[in-house]
Simulated assay, not measured.
Amino acid sequence: MDTWRKEEDSEEVEIDLGDSSDPDEYDNGDEPQTLWKAPPPVEEDENIHTSTLVEISDTKPLINVRDPRGINDCLKVTFEDVIAEPASVRSGDRVWIWSNALFEVSRVWIYRIVTVLLAIPVSIVSGLLFAILSCLHIWMVSPCIQCLSIGTRWLQSLWNIVLSIILQPFFKSAGRCCGGFSVHLAKE
Rank of each mutant, 00 (worst) to 15 (best):
I124A: 08
T115N: 15
Q168G: 00
A119R: 06
I145Y: 09
P23V: 01
R66M: 12
L62K: 06
P61I: 03
V114C: 02
S20Y: 07
V42D: 06
W98K: 14
V162S: 05
G175N: 08
I110L: 09
A101D: 04
V108S: 10
H184P: 00
V65A: 13
L133P: 00
G175I: 00
E46D: 14
D16T: 05
L148H: 02
G70Q: 01
A87W: 11
V13C: 02
C135F: 15
C178R: 11
P23L: 01
S164R: 10
W4I: 03
I97E: 15
L35S: 12
T78I: 03
T59N: 04
C147E: 11
C144M: 14
E85L: 13
T34V: 15
T152F: 12
D30L: 12
G151E: 02
R176H: 07
V65W: 04
G175W: 00
L133V: 14
T78F: 04
T52G: 14
L136E: 03
E14M: 09
C147L: 10
N160H: 12
E85H: 04
P169F: 05
R5C: 04
A131F: 09
C178T: 13
V77R: 05
W154R: 13
D81I: 05
E8R: 11
I97W: 04
G92K: 03
I71H: 08
L75H: 02
K60F: 06
F171E: 02
L62G: 01
T115E: 14
L148D: 05
P86G: 15
D58R: 09
I165F: 05
S21M: 07
T52L: 10
W96Y: 13
L53A: 11
S182G: 02
I63Y: 06
L102Y: 11
A119S: 11
G127M: 02
F171Y: 14
C178L: 15
L128T: 15
S126D: 10
L136Y: 09
V65L: 13
D16G: 03
G180A: 08
K60W: 01
I165C: 07
E8D: 10
S57L: 05
A87L: 13
L158Q: 10
V108N: 08
E7Y: 00
W139F: 15
I138F: 07
P121V: 00
L148V: 03
P23H: 01
V89N: 07
D30A: 13
H184N: 07
L136F: 12
W96K: 00
L185V: 15
N100M: 07
Q156L: 11
P68N: 00
M1T: 08
T50D: 11
D9I: 02
L62R: 09
E80H: 11
L133R: 13
D24W: 06
G175T: 03
P23S: 04
Q146S: 11
S106H: 10
E14R: 09
E8F: 06
L35K: 10
C177A: 12
C178I: 14
L53N: 14
G70V: 01
F79N: 04
P121H: 00
